[in-house]
Nucleic acid binder design. Structure first.
Length: 566
RNA sequence: GCGCCUGUAGCUCAGCAGGAUAGAGCAACUGCCUUCUAAGCAGUGGGUCAGGAGUUCGAAUCUCUUCAGGCGCGCCA
């Protein structure tokens, strides 16, 4: 797809202009020949400092043994601005070169948005690379918690950003339906089953079992349909039945909750498949063949320390059962080798960060480039209610689950709030704020901007006034500061998507859309769209229609609705 | 003890491949609705960028160190 990034166009023109000026100066012997790796162009914080600024003169100063301002002057006097968007160039401060662009450049964005519509903002830095985002992967032995909720919002938005950046993205959920924890799950269910029918003391609850009420609930329901006929059934056999029953219920619930949350996975990958296809054993064999394992005390160990880890790790316990780690290596081997992903992004909770180094080490051991695996660690979530930390749901008296949260705040607020903070920082989720219908609530603030625009469009449309094509309006009428600021923000979207994709930070997009909404509200109060001046009205109408498209694009990328009325 | 993350306005956080006077929202105070949604806008006050040292023309940003908080270091996942 053809994409338009005005920011990139401007940067390229400026870089070329600087380069040519430098070459010319060297030819005239007014500057020595020097090498600069990359010309850094930044957007100055202060508007008086122009649209772009560069510090090349300061960087060259040492090499050239000349004062930075003098270098800057020489460069500027050798610049040829004809045929570019550059209007004027100034030297300022310690030696910055500030570039001021023509308004024409800015007005191009109107055409770009009209041209690309709901695809405006897309870029192609991914070149169709196959990338997997594996996220949530909640333990199917119980309900989803706030960590899963944050991971879901983050992972899904990151996946969307990568799609917008030109990657071929697969969203995947890893279902841990095998191994030790399923054993524990089965023993816990069995204990509750017998206890419910014959009393608390009739069966000892396993030391390391799952104590949650949901386990008892499962068995209570099971009994109401199946009765007590499993009391006399062989332990192993009935545990199998209980596990299948409860696990399916949990997985169905997880799928339903995530669907409600607006997340559609491409693949639900079962850990058990890795065992069924013998991939866990194959992986262990491969590591052994390469000499990266050894036996000690009846267990098989992986030499993780040879790959930078602090200590070696058990792959197969002395009872012959592979560890979670062994299965996880097999899983990642499957992602990279069997399925051929170019990049894999895993989103894990903070309590798994110790796992990162050894996982990357294992990647190296099986011949995969560890740099192609990115692990995003998300920090914990604190729920706040009435200014206090809320651990339990008031309604159920149990820990707050994803569905409790969605009941309380709705999908829009949850997804927006979880993406307001960088993944690395702890997040306080203010439940009261999330449901507040006022300017304090960032979700409403952005959605309100969208609804306001739709309202104006609707009103004028009823009077027979429609949005015109970019070619039939006079864009140069958009010269109020509020209008210019809005246009500048619209220009930034492709670059914002690019940076968000490169840094894997969806929170950038929530900040962007908040900024854009704020600029719109300012514009709204300063400039009227509906006026007697027909030409001006047409131009402003076009402008707000562009803002509407961009707000809508970003909100949808975040998985948040863009209401037309509020 | 070792490793990772965090520390910026009263609160919640941006800024951190070094750049010009450190920003936003909330809270506080002052204004703006006979005109397209006041779920909005404009303005005021508010800082030892945790402390210290170093590198640099220039450090919130990079290095070292101290302090404070969180997490991890299982034949758990």
């Amino acid at each position: 797809m053809e994409t338009i990034n005005l920011m990139e166009i401007a940067r390229e023109q400026i870089r070329r202009t600087i380069k040519k000026a430098a070459e010319k100066a060297v030819q005239q012997d007014s500057l020595p020949e020097l090498h600069i790796d990359e010309i850094v162009l930044e957007i100055p914080r202060e508007k008086q400092h122009g649209d772009f600024a560069t510090n090349v003169a300061m960087q060259m100063a040492r090499q050239a043994k000349m004062p930075p301002r003098k270098i800057a002057d020489i460069l500027v006097s050798n610049m040829a601005l004809e045929g570019t968007y550059i209007e004027k160039v100034e030297v300022a401060g310690p030696g910055f070169i500030n570039f001021y662009l023509k308004k024409e450049w800015l007005y191009q964005v109107i055409h770009a948005i009209e041209w690309m519509g709901n695809d405006y903002g897309r870029v192609n830095i991914g070149n169709g690379q196959k990338v997997m985002v594996e996220f949530v992967s909640a333990n199917p032995t119980g309900p989803m918690h706030m960590g899963n909720a944050r991971g879901g919002a983050l992972g899904d938005c990151l996946a969307s950003i990568l799609e917008w950046a030109g990657y071929d993205v697969t969203r995947e959920f890893y279902i841990n339906d095998a191994g030790n924890q399923i054993e524990k799950f089965g023993r816990s269910l069995e204990a509750r089953y017998v206890q419910l029918l014959k009393g608390e003391d009739a069966f000892p609850f396993p030391e390391d079992g799952y104590h949650g009420e949901d386990i008892t609930d499962h068995m209570r329901e099971f009994i109401s349909s199946e009765g007590d006929k499993y009391l006399d059934v062989d332990s192993e056999e009935r545990r199998k039945v209980f596990v299948e029953y409860a696990l399916n219920k949990n997985i169905e619930k997880i799928k339903a909750d995530l669907k409600r949350y607006g997340i559609e996975y491409d693949v639900w990958f079962h850990e058990s498949w890795l065992y069924e296809n013998n991939e866990v054993q194959q992986t262990i064999d491969e590591l052994t063949q390469k000499g990266y394992t050894y036996e000690k005390e009846g267990a098989i160990w992986f030499k993780a320390t040879e790959f930078g880890a602090e200590k070696d790790e058990v792959l197969v316990r002395n009872n012959g059962v592979p560890t979670y780690f062994a299965a996880d290596i097999a899983y990642h081997r499957n992602k990279f080798i069997t399925r051929g992903f170019d990049r894999v992004i895993d989103i894990w909770g903070a309590d798994h960060h110790g796992h990162v180094t050894r996982m990357k080490g294992a990647m190296k051991a099986i011949g995969c480039d560890p740099d192609k695996l990115d692990v995003i660690i998300i920090q914990l979530v604190r729920l706040l209610k009435n200014g206090e930390v809320a651990r339990m749901s008031k309604r159920t008296g149990r820990t707050v689950t994803l569905s409790d949260l969605l009941d309380e705040t709705g999908v829009d607020a949850a997804r927006f709030f979880f993406n307001m903070r960088q993944s690395g920082s702890h997040l306080d989720f203010d439940l009261d704020l999330a449901v507040k219908q006022s300017n304090e609530n960032p979700v409403f603030y952005v959605q309100y901007a969208h609804a306001r625009i739709c309202s104006i469009l609707r009103l004028l449309s009823e009077e027979g006034i429609q949005v015109k094509g970019a070619d039939s309006i006079d864009v140069s009428l958009l010269n109020q500061p509020e209008e210019v600021e809005l246009l500048k923000k619209l220009v930034e979207l492709p670059e914002e998507i690019t940076i968000a994709a490169l840094t894997m930070e969806p929170s950038r997009m929530t900040r962007y859309v908040l900024d854009l909404a704020a600029l719109f509200h300012t514009f709204y109060n300063a400039c009227r769209v509906k006026t007697e001046d027909v030409e001006l009205m047409a131009a402003r109408l076009k402008l707000i229609d562009c803002v509407r498209i961009v707000l809508s694009n970003v909100l949808h990328l975040l998985g948040v609705s863009a209401p037309e009325r509020m």
